[in-house]
């Protein structure tokens, strides 16, 4: 499998504060790859530098043959990356339908867009009932579905998801995870940032663990799920593993 997205030697700063220290990782085509980490580990910043919302001071980011460091955010989206931002970030005063069509903003194939819209409504039947509602009136779970559908409307090769389960009720968390898997089965590569390690590892193929701006652990998701260090850091709670 080829790598779709490759980050190498990334150093990122917020003013004088360094966030990433030589960050390197890759997302392989067709996989669900997740980046785990606690608060202030640099997860969301990783998302920002991939989407061009923030520029790293050193290092390279390649998506297929595109050097993302040289592209603006809209150009990065047009290159084939879809984004499901943290906290959804729907256009709250626009209708759900308008939100979905905004997802296809970079496309101009009208007939195909209409077909994709219909496909989304089949994939997310709940969204169909709310099509003419203002997006701001939807529940958190419904908004998450609209945000995913909106990203898919751009026909991306890769979708970046920032904490897709954050703030959702447990019922919706499972549903969202199923949908992520379903989307992935249709051939879309998924890169997600998550704080909830057990959930993310349950659906991911490969995972990285970020701590204080450095990758401290990586591997197949099923291996990591059993790794005591992961269990200690993210699942186990207070007790340190016996050495």
């Amino acid at each position: 499998m080829t790598a779709l997205l490759v980050l190498k030697g990334i150093d990122t700063f917020y003013g004088p504060v360094q966030v990433h220290f030589g960050l390197g990782m890759e997302v392989r085509q067709g996989q669900i790859v997740c980046l785990l980490g606690g608060n202030a580990s640099g997860k969301s910043t990783t998302m920002k530098i991939i989407l061009g919302l923030l520029r790293p001071r050193a290092g390279s980011i390649f998506f297929e043959a595109h050097d993302l460091a040289a592209l603006s955010t809209p150009q990065i989206i047009r290159a084939g990356i879809g984004s499901v931002p943290e906290a959804r970030r729907l256009f709250s005063a626009m209708t759900v339908r308008e939100n979905l069509l905004m997802g296809a903003f970079a496309r101009s194939d009208r007939a195909e867009i209409a077909r994709d819209l219909e496909r989304m409504l089949e994939l997310f039947p709940r969204v169909r009932q709310r099509l003419t509602s203002r997006a701001g009136t939807l529940s958190g779970g419904e908004q998450q579905m609209v945000a995913m559908a909106r990203a898919l409307m751009g026909r991306p090769k890769l979708i970046c998801m920032d904490e897709p389960t954050m703030g959702l009720s447990p019922l919706f968390v499972d549903r969202v995870l199923e949908l992520i898997q379903a989307v992935n089965k249709e051939g879309v590569t998924i890169f997600m940032v998550e704080q909830n390690a057990s959930l993310a590892l349950a659906i991911a193929h490969y995972a990285y663990v970020l701590q204080a701006g450095r990758i401290i652990l990586q591997g197949e998701a099923k291996d990591l799920a059993r790794d005591p260090r992961i269990r200690a850091a993210y699942l186990g709670g207070e007790t340190e593993p016996a050495a």
Partner: peptide
Amino acid sequence: RATAQDRDAARQMGVNT
């Protein structure tokens, strides 16, 4: 309209703000 509501999100839809 999208930019007015959420500039960053609009950029993430490919809008050249």
